[in-house]
Computed example of a mutant assay.
Amino acid sequence: MFDWLRRRRLSNEAKRKLLIAAARAEEAIVETHVANVLELMALLGTEVDVDRGLELYHEMLPMDEHISATVTNRVLARYDSPGVPPAPGRRFENVFRDGGR
C-alpha cells in the first residue's frame, strides 16, 4: 500500500493509526462519490436510468477501479431504497476521530 512505509521505521502503534486514518479517508472519498451520484440521479430524474447515470459520473470523474466498483455497488444498493436519505449534510462528522481510543 505505502512503499515509503516499508522504508521508514514506525512503531506498530503508529502504523496502526496511519492505516486507520488512510482507511477512514478512503471511506470518506467513497461516501462522497456515492452521495454525488445519488444527487446526480435525483437531478436527472427520469431522464436516464441508474446504469447510465453511473456511466456518466464515471466519465466525468474517473477513479481507480476498486473505488469505482465500490461506489457502483453502494449506489446500486442504496438507489431508490426507502429510508435512505439523499446526500446527508453531516455525513463526515467525527470521521477522523477514534471514538474514545
Score class of each variant (00 low, 15 high):
residue 1 M to S: 14
residue 1 M to A: 11
residue 1 M to H: 12
residue 2 F to D: 15
residue 2 F to P: 04
residue 2 F to V: 11
residue 3 D to C: 07
residue 3 D to L: 11
residue 3 D to K: 07
residue 5 L to G: 08
residue 6 R to G: 11
residue 7 R to V: 01
residue 7 R to F: 09
residue 8 R to Y: 08
residue 8 R to E: 11
residue 9 R to Y: 04
residue 10 L to Q: 01
residue 11 S to N: 05
residue 11 S to K: 06
residue 12 N to E: 15
residue 12 N to V: 06
residue 14 A to I: 06
residue 16 R to L: 11
residue 16 R to N: 12
residue 18 L to T: 07
residue 18 L to W: 02
residue 18 L to G: 04
residue 20 I to C: 03
residue 20 I to T: 12
residue 21 A to K: 12
residue 21 A to L: 14
residue 22 A to M: 14
residue 22 A to G: 13
residue 22 A to Y: 09
residue 23 A to C: 08
residue 23 A to I: 07
residue 27 E to S: 15
residue 27 E to Y: 11
residue 27 E to M: 13
residue 28 A to Q: 10
residue 28 A to K: 11
residue 28 A to L: 10
residue 29 I to T: 13
residue 30 V to Q: 07
residue 30 V to E: 14
residue 31 E to Y: 01
residue 32 T to W: 06
residue 32 T to R: 10
residue 33 H to G: 05
residue 35 A to C: 10
residue 36 N to V: 07
residue 36 N to Y: 01
residue 37 V to K: 08
residue 38 L to N: 04
residue 39 E to Y: 09
residue 39 E to D: 11
residue 39 E to I: 07
residue 41 M to G: 02
residue 41 M to T: 04
residue 41 M to P: 00
residue 42 A to L: 06
residue 42 A to I: 03
residue 42 A to K: 10
residue 43 L to N: 07
residue 43 L to S: 10
residue 44 L to E: 12
residue 45 G to I: 03
residue 46 T to M: 03
residue 47 E to I: 12
residue 47 E to Y: 03
residue 52 R to N: 03
residue 52 R to D: 05
residue 52 R to W: 01
residue 53 G to D: 00
residue 53 G to M: 01
residue 53 G to R: 00
residue 53 G to C: 02
residue 55 E to N: 06
residue 56 L to C: 02
residue 56 L to Y: 02
residue 56 L to W: 01
residue 56 L to N: 03
residue 57 Y to F: 14
residue 58 H to K: 11
residue 58 H to M: 07
residue 58 H to Y: 06
residue 59 E to H: 09
residue 59 E to R: 07
residue 60 M to A: 15
residue 60 M to W: 04
residue 60 M to I: 05
residue 62 P to H: 01
residue 64 D to T: 13
residue 64 D to I: 07
residue 65 E to C: 04
residue 66 H to I: 13
residue 66 H to M: 13
residue 67 I to Y: 01
residue 68 S to M: 10
residue 68 S to A: 15
residue 69 A to V: 03
residue 70 T to R: 13
residue 71 V to E: 02
residue 71 V to G: 06
residue 72 T to I: 03
residue 72 T to Q: 06
residue 73 N to C: 08
residue 73 N to F: 07
residue 73 N to P: 00
residue 73 N to G: 10
residue 74 R to Q: 04
residue 74 R to I: 01
residue 75 V to M: 00
residue 77 A to W: 01
residue 77 A to S: 09
residue 77 A to R: 12
residue 77 A to Y: 03
residue 78 R to F: 00
residue 79 Y to V: 02
residue 80 D to F: 04
residue 80 D to L: 08
residue 81 S to N: 10
residue 81 S to I: 12
residue 81 S to Y: 04
residue 81 S to L: 12
residue 83 G to D: 08
residue 83 G to P: 00
residue 84 V to P: 00
residue 84 V to E: 08
residue 85 P to C: 10
residue 86 P to M: 06
residue 86 P to R: 07
residue 86 P to T: 11
residue 86 P to L: 15
residue 88 P to G: 13
residue 88 P to V: 13
residue 89 G to K: 15
residue 90 R to P: 02
residue 90 R to Y: 10
residue 91 R to A: 13
residue 91 R to T: 03
residue 92 F to I: 15
residue 92 F to E: 12
residue 93 E to I: 12
residue 94 N to Y: 05
residue 94 N to K: 09
residue 94 N to M: 06
residue 94 N to D: 13
residue 94 N to T: 08
residue 95 V to P: 00
residue 96 F to C: 03
residue 97 R to H: 11
residue 97 R to G: 15
residue 98 D to R: 15
residue 98 D to E: 15
residue 98 D to N: 14
residue 98 D to C: 10
residue 99 G to V: 07
residue 99 G to M: 08
